[in-house]
Design a protein around this nucleic acid. Structure first.
Lengths: 225, 225
DNA sequence: TCCATTCTTAAGCTGATTTTAAGATAAGTC
DNA sequence: GACTTATCTTAAAATCAGCTTAAGAATGGA
């Protein structure tokens, strides 16, 4: 189990690292936002949990969180916030964080929260399918009838969102929140363009699209029988 | 989505219930530990999230949590704790809770946390039924005798409103408010058109309509026996 | 820096949905 | 039964959501 801690105050960072190492975790520490993001992006597959300080010199926590979520939206992210900044915390959760801890926090509390998130993670699916289409999260590839189809980042993210929600309608507002990270915005016409791209790349000619339009609501992929 | 709130302070309980109902959740409230546990155990499959006050007359929150976890360890449980009782909170997490919220909390914060937990769960279906008609909210489909019936957005919204209020009379003014979001308007003849459309699509020939006209008031769907 | 790729914005187009409107029908009242 | 009023039904008009392109902006390598 490997954790990344992004925290500029050395004393806190050390306190966390020592404690977690005693508990048997491998811990990387980044002392500013830039380094933190670099570490996170370079080793995104390695980390089981990321602890992010909210107030950081340079890049702040929320920006880092957003950047990480663009690339990977499963690794659990926990915010460390100064107390009484509840609004910030909500902001953090909306930015894709899974939890937050208010400072000052007890080590025990933090550990408990880390364990809760690891629990939910361990049954992570890494292979999604829909008909002839297959997505491998770890390899970051998509195939159709076992032939690789090249997708851009956004195309991949959108398709991943659909596959994770196979059988359910994906509402436009949710899509724009989850895939584009845009909140409280009513113009979501970008989605159309990407739907179009996915269909062009993945549909079979003379057949209905594998992405079903649910007018006025969003889109969905039919669950297999 | 159905939530159970176990909270003895009526003002807090009402605040939570009203807010969550506005967000479209169904909410059950228990005002003491014993009732709370009964409700939880009797309807364990029904609840999508359980909110548990820590300090309760009779059974306290942690005992309830343990009992619930003996029977079911997926339903997300959130503790409500008085502030500065961090140790208790850890205790709660160890007893099987998934999260805790410190009082006083903002409604937004609570909502955000509830949503985070629902995200990780969301494998159960939300179904509304009336006779042979079935509505699946997540799939956004309506079936009659297991055959899919295509509905437009407004038709769907109207039917959803009826099904959510099965057995109760739905007044025209309420309908226009809830489904069309039109307030203080006295022309609500659009409803007629949509009632007609729903009947055409969902009624069986030579049988009374499943939408009953209550002249001068509105419409209703009969509750199943 | 320049080039190539990807992402976003914008706009016209199309077909479906929603609303309006108006005559027909049914229910309730005197 | 005649009158009034609410609801039903239909069809046409208005609006809107989604599709498709293309072009400009941003990003990331060479």
């Amino acid at each position: 189990m490997r954790l990344l801690v992004v925290e500029d105050e050395t004393s806190i960072a050390n306190f966390i690292r020592d404690g977690l190492e005693e508990e048997g975790f491998a811990v990387d520490v980044a002392s500013n936002g830039k380094k933190g993001l670099e570490l996170a992006l370079d080793n995104i597959k390695e980390y089981d949990v990321i602890l992010l300080d909210w107030m950081l010199p340079g890049l702040n926590g929320i920006e880092i969180c957003r950047e990480i979520r663009k690339v990977n939206n499963v690794v659990p992210i926990i915010f460390l916030t100064a107390k009484d900044t509840v609004d910030d915390a909500i902001f953090g959760l909306e930015a894709g964080a899974n939890d937050y801890i208010r400072k000052p926090f007890s080590f025990e509390e933090m550990l408990a929260r880390i364990r809760v998130l690891m629990r939910t993670r361990s049954n992570e699916v890494v292979l999604f399918t829909a008909g002839a289409i297959e997505m491998d999260i770890e390899k970051h590839t998509v195939t159709k009838n076992n032939t690789v189809v090249e997708l851009t980042q956004k195309e991949f993210a959108l398709l991943e969102y659909f596959l994770r929600n196979k059988g359910k309608v994906c509402r436009r507002t949710r899509i724009i929140e989850k895939v584009w990270d845009i909140h409280y915005d009513h113009d979501n016409s970008v989605i159309d363009v990407y739907i179009n791209a996915l269909r062009k790349k993945l549909d079979s000619p003379n057949e209905p699209s594998f992405i079903i339009t649910v007018r006025g609501v969003g889109y969905k992929i039919e669950a297999d029988e």
